[in-house]
Amino acid sequence: MVDTFTNIQEILSEILDIEPDEVSEDTYVIRDLGAESIDLLELAVALNTAFKSGLKSEIIDDEIFLRFLREYMTEADQAGKEHAGYLKEKYPFFSETRIDEMLSDLSSGPVLKVSDLIDYIHSRSIAV
């Protein structure tokens, strides 16, 4: 049985037309691989198909690609809440450690990593 990482690695290499060994768990999907919005759309559809999630790919889009990350931070500010705690509520599939990492890494660009995709798949219990 192909594990979740290998499956995602194959999907990314096909969509982005890159070699599989260019993709590791620590690779940033947008920052390192240059994935654009059309690639992320295709990735959502492919993840949904590959993992037979039963989730709509629209939901995967919204949840995993951190589309609303900065909006959530603004919401937290407006509600007088800590960013980390608020983001944990919005992204329950990420650990507190990972959310702290994301917050400290935001200034360098989009923070989504391949390992985040794996965590999402596992958390949603949709892994093969």
């Binding site: 759309l41 295709e42 959502a44 559809v45 492919a46 949904n48 198909t49 790919s57 629209e58």
Partner: peptide
């Protein structure tokens, strides 16, 4: 359209 397009994209 979005729903159909996603199926087609797959």
């Amino acid at each position: 359209i979005a729903h159909v397009a996603r199926i087609m994209l797959g």
